[in-house]
């Protein structure tokens, strides 16, 4: 695939499954996930990389899917909120969000959960300020963040406790 084309065949892994699709070069990953694969858990809030609602994991790193072209994901492994939910990898974090009412409208939540997920394995336990810093690229317009910080902190403490 070297020719400069408007459309490209891409093959990648999404939530553990191989996916092959033909996409326009201009299709960003968020639209690819939502429109082509029906994975509507990845939300679009701004399409200019500010709000964080579209955050997914690409090869394990938190990534703005609106600032990543689908065609660039050839050969990569993408994990969305649907995948991370099915795997149960952060079920404890999701339960903490629920118990703490750390979401209201829920629109930011998939991006917030994905963003927070990479904190859970941090070697050093982040404090509240560090949690706030880490999620600072994800807007929540409903909660005022306090409850989200609580939910992440609770999960971190429980994991640290369990790992002891």
């Amino acid at each position: 695939m070297t020719a400069a084309q408007m459309e490209h065949e891409i093959t990648l892994t999404v939530n553990g499954f191989a996916v092959s699709e033909r996409v326009e070069a201009r299709r960003h990953l968020a639209d690819f996930l939502r429109e082509d694969l029906g994975l509507t858990g990845t939300h679009i809030g701004c399409e200019h990389g500010v709000c964080g609602a579209c955050t997914v994991l690409v090869d394990g790193e938190i990534t703005r899917s609106c600032l990543t072209l689908a065609v660039q994901c050839e050969g990569k492994s993408v994990t969305t909120i649907e995948g991370i939910s099915d795997s149960g990898a952060v079920a404890d974090l999701q339960e903490a969000f629920r118990a703490r009412n750390a979401l209201q409208c829920g629109y930011c939540t998939p991006g917030m959960v994905i963003t927070a997920s990479v904190l859970l394995d941090a070697e050093e336990m982040p404090d509240r300020e560090e949690i706030r810093d880490h999620i600072s690229g994800n807007y929540c317009r409903c909660t005022g963040y306090h409850a989200i910080v609580d939910a992440v902190e609770t999960t971190l403490k429980a994991r640290a406790e369990a790992g002891r």
Binding site: T40, I81, E82, S85, R98, G106, T109
Partner: peptide, 15 residues
């Protein structure tokens, strides 16, 4: 807790 939340934390909402 609210009944809707599990769904929404898993990206299974319908906006």
């Amino acid at each position: 807790p609210r009944p809707n939340l599990k769904r929404l934390t898993e990206g299974r909402g319908e906006y």
